[in-house]
Amino acid sequence: MTQKDKTILVVDDQPSLVRLVRDNLESRGFRVTSASDGKKALDIVENDKPDLVVLDIMMPGLDGYEVCRRIREFSTVPIIMLTARNDQESLVHGFEAGADDYIAKPFHANELLARIDAVLRRSEYTEVNKYSPSFTCGDISIDFVRHEVTKKGAVKQLTPTEYRLLYYLAINSGKVMLHADLLTKVWGPEYSSATDYLRVYIRHLRTHLEDKDNEPVYIITVPGVGYVLKCPQAV
């Protein structure tokens, strides 16, 4: 799929911002659709299946956090959240709701375009383990070709960012991956110190893959250093 085939849903109750984002995205060849409230946004995501959602947090009715959580109940579409607040609490709240990235208002159009390009690249990640098309770790199996993750035979619906993080842990299983290395590989070099991103997404993966996410046996924290994926035969 080329960039001209991609549709971006912009969700914001400020017509001037929607118009600004639309003009900049369309000038880059994207198709753009919009919604001014959360309910309409949910309908568009479910029925039209856009390739990415740019989602404002502060909206009447359903706020962006709730819209993001509801989207994650049925879709792994990449989501970039927009907010007027740039504090750590808001950032973590957005990632816990299921967002893939986060940008604070006011923002430069080029910054938003760069974030969209980066998130779309992650969502299309097609690298296959050069040694094997699949990976098994205890009850967890990863099909690198289909990008499918199962535990005890049940398919786990991972977002593109969650899958990409698990991929790097899996192909380096048994080795401690440093915080900065994981952040650089999954999000890009500009995120190498954004440990809050990593902490939230490790928590997401544990929710999917661990029997008790507060007593992990697969994704292990090495305090102050990083994380390691341990398999039963390596324990």
Rank of each mutant, 00 (worst) to 15 (best):
Y125I: 05
I140Q: 05
F135P: 07
R146H: 12
T136D: 13
N110I: 10
R164T: 08
T76M: 08
I103Y: 10
Y131W: 11
L82C: 06
E148G: 04
F95Y: 11
I142H: 06
E73F: 01
T76G: 03
D117E: 15
E127C: 07
L62V: 01
H108P: 00
A109P: 04
I142T: 06
F144R: 04
R85W: 08
Y102I: 08
S75D: 03
V149E: 05
L158K: 07
F74A: 01
P160Y: 03
A84F: 14
A99N: 02
V67Y: 06
H147F: 09
L113K: 06
R69K: 14
L112M: 14
R146M: 12
V67W: 09
C68A: 03
A99H: 01
K105S: 00
L112Y: 10
N110A: 13
G64F: 00
V145Q: 14
I116L: 08
Q88A: 14
Q88R: 15
M58T: 10
F135G: 07
Y65V: 07
V119I: 14
P60R: 11
T159N: 02
V119D: 07
Y102G: 09
R121Y: 09
K130C: 04
R121P: 03
V145M: 13
T83D: 05
E148T: 13
V145A: 12
L91H: 07
N86A: 15
R69C: 00
T159C: 02
R115P: 01
K130H: 13
D117K: 14
T76V: 11
V155G: 09
P133Q: 11
K130T: 14
M81I: 08
G98L: 00
R115E: 06
A84Y: 13
C137L: 05
H147W: 11
A118P: 07
A154E: 15
L82D: 03
H93V: 03
L91R: 12
P78W: 04
L91S: 07
R146E: 15
P78A: 05
M58I: 09
K151D: 06
T136R: 14
N129P: 07
Y163M: 01
E89R: 13
P160T: 01
F95Q: 00
E124P: 04
A104C: 14
K152N: 14
V67E: 04
E111I: 11
S123H: 10
I142G: 01
S123Q: 05
G153M: 08
C68G: 00
A109H: 08
D143F: 12
R122Q: 12
G61H: 03
S90K: 02
L120H: 07
K156V: 07
D87V: 05
G138N: 08
T136F: 03
T76A: 12
M58Y: 07
Y65C: 04
E66H: 02
R121I: 10
I142M: 10
R115Q: 09
M59P: 01
E66S: 03
L82I: 09
G64H: 02
E148W: 04
V149Y: 03
Y102V: 11
S90F: 05
D101T: 04
E89S: 15
S75R: 01
N129D: 15
L165Q: 05
